[in-house]
Every structure is written in C-alpha cells, then in structure tokens.
Write a protein that binds this DNA or RNA. Structure first.
Lengths: 108, 108
DNA sequence: TCCATATTTCAAGAATAATTGAAATGAAGA
DNA sequence: TCTTCATTTCAATTATTCTTGAAATATGGA
C-alpha cells in the first residue's frame, strides 16, 4: 500500500457519517444492507449517504451488489488489514523493541 | 473507544503530511525524533509541522518529551491498536462468519 | 543577563470537504 | 410501455482544514 492510498482509506473512515456507516456494515456482516436501510438506520439523508458511499467505494472500503431494485453495501476488511500493516511497517527500523504499548510487541 | 474519539484518531492519520510524520516516528522507534529533525526529514516547514504535531498530540497518537532545547516526538501505538479493535467491534453481530478477507477470520 | 536557536503561535488566504433539496437515472413489475 | 420507487447526480452553499511567513516564546549556555 502506498502513502496516498493509505490517506484515501483513512479519509474514508475519518468522518462521523462514514464511520457510522462503516460500523453499521461491519456489524450487519457480509450480506450487507440496502442503501435505503442504511439511510434509515443512521439517519443520514439519501443524497448525503450516496455521497459518502461513493467515497467509501472509491477507497475500496465497501463492496456493493445489486439485488432487485436495491443496492446492498457491505464492509471490506481486506483493505483495513492492509492499512494496519502499512502503518506499522518497518517499525523501529525492524529491530524488536519490546516496549509495552509499542508496535514491536506483536513481533516480540 | 467512542465514535468521536475514533474520528479524531483517524483524522489525525488521514492527511499526507501527518501520515508521513507518523510513519517516520514509527520507523525511528520509541526514542522519537526532535521536531527540527522531523521537519528536515519530511520537508514540512516548522510552522506547518507544529500545526500537525499539535493535532496528533490531541489525538494521542504521539508522545513528546523535552530534552535540552529539543522536543522529541514519538509514536503511540496503544491508541492505534484500540482503534482497530473499535473498527471490528461486534463484527457480524458477534457470529463468526469464516469468510475470506472478512473481520471474523481472526476469531475463527 | 544576554544571545543563539528550537519550537510554537498568529493571522489570513487558499484549498478541500460536507450538506441537502430537487431533478435525473435506472430497474422491475403490471 | 407505463408506473413505481430506490438510488444517484447536480449545484450552490456552508463549513472545515491546510499552509506558511513573521512574530513570539522558551530553553540553556556563555
């Protein structure tokens, strides 16, 4: 993952409406939720929701599929896991540090 | 972690300058780096850097300590790990889903 | 105290992002 | 085809964030 990609992914999460949408989709699981229902659940008006879903789609944070007249959106965790890897990359220049609450804990 | 706290943390990372700063601090390890050196390394002018470091401090993403005339900044991973936990919280309403590239992988 | 220098604050402008009603688009059943 | 309704696009406004030089502040050595 590149720096710019990571910024796009993070920006897609760093907004109250979008974070609510994302968490709603995480909790509902892989089948996802129709746009209208997301609007209802989160209280975000359809046009605002559409704007945010577009951003999240661009960031590859959500997947969508059409089913009859509904469009179901679901969370994409692959990208989020990649993001975490990117953030901790080359921690302490690769030398395990063993300090509590620091990234290298996980490798130590 | 609360929704608003998470947005603050994510916003602190979702910006090119700040992401560069953070990654620089991750790679340099727990001793951190003096502000002037960060400015030099990243090419961000001192006043811009100060603005961003303040945001990151507010988000609790970096720690700082004074040493002589220098102020050393270092990355705080505890908060980042909390953030990941928050994002995957109650995934699939707690029911392991076993789907590839989905959050419940980690628990399954 | 006085100086050198590391860092922060200030202020104003520039850039980017969010909001939402109304109109347009698209899909599927009658 | 016509109608219905779920979703998206448009457009204009509003809000927020970023940027940076210059000035202020803070630290420690001389």
């Amino acid at each position: 993952m590149e720096n710019k990609t990571a910024v796009i992914t993070l920006s897609a999460l760093a907004q109250e409406s979008r974070l609510s949408i994302f968490r709603t989709l995480v909790q509902v699981g892989p089948d996802g939720m129709a746009a209208g229902k997301i609007s209802e659940t989160t209280g975000i008006p359809p046009s605002s929701l559409s704007f945010h879903l577009k951003e999240m789609t661009y960031a590859n944070l959500v997947n969508s599929r059409q089913e009859s007249r509904y469009i179901y959106y679901s969370a994409n965790f692959k990208v989020m896991n990649e993001l975490l890897g990117f953030l901790t990359e080359n921690c302490c220049a690769g030398v395990p540090c063993g300090i509590e609450s620091h990234c290298c804990d996980e490798k130590a």
